[in-house]
Amino acid sequence: MYLGIDTGASATKAVIVDRRGEIASQAIVPSGVNFKVSSEMAAKKALDAVRLDLEDMLYVVSTGYGKALVNSTSKSSEIACISRGVYRLIPSARTIIDVGGQDSKAIRISKDGKVLNFVMNDKCAAGTGRFLEIMSNTLQRPIEELSMLHFKAKKPVKMSSTCTVFAESEVVSQMSQGIKIEDVIAGLHEAIAERIYTMASRIGFEQDVAFTGGVSKNKGFVDALRKKICLSPVLPEEPQIVCAFGAALLAMKKHKEKP
């Protein structure tokens, strides 16, 4: 068995695959402030589910923000892991849009799954899950609720800024003007979709387009991005664990290649 651990900015994911690369078990825990602890927790949870110990893992690959802090056989970039995960789940995908807690990425892959090019958002939180988290705090509604309210919107507002700080005060002022919450939410989703679209345009969209990352669980956001790129995306069943799954597949590959 092989283990992949993805230490994301907001959640840490662990996936175990069997020797055929099929998912045997998976776990998601909040990252907190200590990646070492969260990665151990995630690994334990995934291992417990199949009643195995860390020693039973032939190879462990870690990836994500805290990868350096994780006890693993080797480390890999998120780009490599996401691509591998997607290639296995959706072989027809040529473009991947991954939106995570603190990063968004667009990746182009070849028909044999190789990374051809990629771009990532720069530094600020606009266009990432963090932006939505902050807005959900401002609006005092959980993200899941925002996701559903999105579909009730009749006239989504136009946000004039995707800067998280500016957008926050804009949202407050819109709410005080009596604008409907669903219109504000749809406006926010459109704003980050726009931002991601602009970034991904640098490498272009080739079909099929796959969406991955935790934020792709947000149906409202997916709807906004789908409309923006005018293409229907393909979504894996569990978009949030694709990167950890890819890491586990890489662990399998690396183990087989080992001299």
Partner: peptide
């Protein structure tokens, strides 16, 4: 992190 990904590519 980006350099890692690029070099892997």
């Amino acid at each position: 992190g980006r350099i890692d990904a690029f070099m892997e590519m």
